[in-house]
Design a protein around this nucleic acid. Structure first.
Lengths: 197, 197
DNA sequence: GTCTATAGGTGGATAGAC
DNA sequence: GTCTATCCACCTATAGAC
């Protein structure tokens, strides 16, 4: 039998994955572990302390998805890979996605300074691929973190609408829609105008 | 003194605007109106019935913003106007914005069929401007509702990130960022490639 | 470290008297 | 129509015994 703290954490995570963050309560955890609710407080200062672990799990999985997605090809292809990785994470781990990206949190990192820091691997990764794509001449020149923000906002907008049920329950249908929308972002929706004086 | 139902509705709305939807409870409303909590049930079937009114208020204000924003110029300009109107609504009425677009709701309209219906004025308005812009040759030809979705997802992504505190509290800074990002969506972020066989 | 007992709080909703 | 009295279902967290 693993230590109690481990069992508490595992039970909290299972409750979270089954029912979302609102389904996590000290009483439920205690009931399923088979101890009294107060016993948890010997191992965690309070509920936030417990949820922080879940948050870290989520970010860790998210980073894995992005890191894997960025492996190959030219910079522009790697950016497309990151967009796919973002979606894959959301479809494979919807509870974590909701918790990290939709449900309001305290202490969010702010654009651009706090997010461009080297230790925020996820956004930093995107910015660096965008910078690379710009220097290869594949992307329109500009501020890499602003263009990265545009991409991030776009994939976040699409994905959060999907999570809100706007596209029905079929993930494959949504994936195709998502990819087409990302391509439209890449190529633009407006026909380039005549050069007007 | 207005009828009790009117006072209940007004108090509920004020609580909602002050504290968000979580700040609305039957007890609080009753306390502020000066009646018992149970009295409310003579006028509203249950709490959802009350919140439906607030939802309707929000949509009504939202429609006003879009209708006003779409008035003038060529179709592409009107689409830009709609993007601005969306942002203006979110900045002027953040509680309604959160309630309508971020907090999960039941019975959302789905893309594309339910949303393209003539009576969903807001999305329909956008689709029609996009269709017009395409037929003027200003927008890249395609399915108008898909391009409209791309625009909607983009402005929603940016705005919901702002509402989550990702850009700090300064609305003017965000507005400038938002406009630049929308322009990048219009023109595309990728340099048009050589025509490859 | 874990327990019982308890404090102290939120909330929605109903029965039946007036 | 409105009240009081209640029921019910939750929740976080602490004190102090063992």
């Amino acid at each position: 039998m693993p230590p109690l703290k481990t069992r508490i954490a595992a039970t909290a995570r299972r409750l979270f994955l089954d029912q979302g963050v609102d389904g996590v309560s000290m009483r439920k955890i205690a009931g399923q572990v088979g101890v009294s609710a107060t016993a948890i407080y010997r191992h965690y200062r309070d509920k936030d302390d417990l949820l922080d672990e879940i948050t870290e799990d989520g970010f860790s999985i998210f980073r894995d998805y992005l890191t894997r997605a960025v492996s190959s090809g030219r910079a522009a292809e790697r950016v497309r890979g990151l967009a796919r990785g973002y979606l894959d994470f959301a479809l494979d781990h919807p509870r974590y996605y909701d918790f990290i990206f939709i449900i309001p949190r305290h202490n969010v990192r702010r654009f651009p300074d706090e997010m461009a820091r080297r230790d925020d691997l996820s956004f930093h990764l995107l910015v660096e691929q965008v910078r690379q794509a710009m220097s290869e001449g594949a992307f329109v020149a500009g501020d890499p973190s602003e263009t990265a923000l545009t991409i991030w906002a776009h994939v976040h907008g699409l994905t959060s609408l999907h999570r809100a049920g706007r596209f029905g329950a079929n993930n494959d249908t949504f994936r195709a829609l998502y990819n087409r929308s990302v391509e439209r972002l890449f190529t633009g929706i407006e026909v380039p105008g005549e050069v007007n004086p």
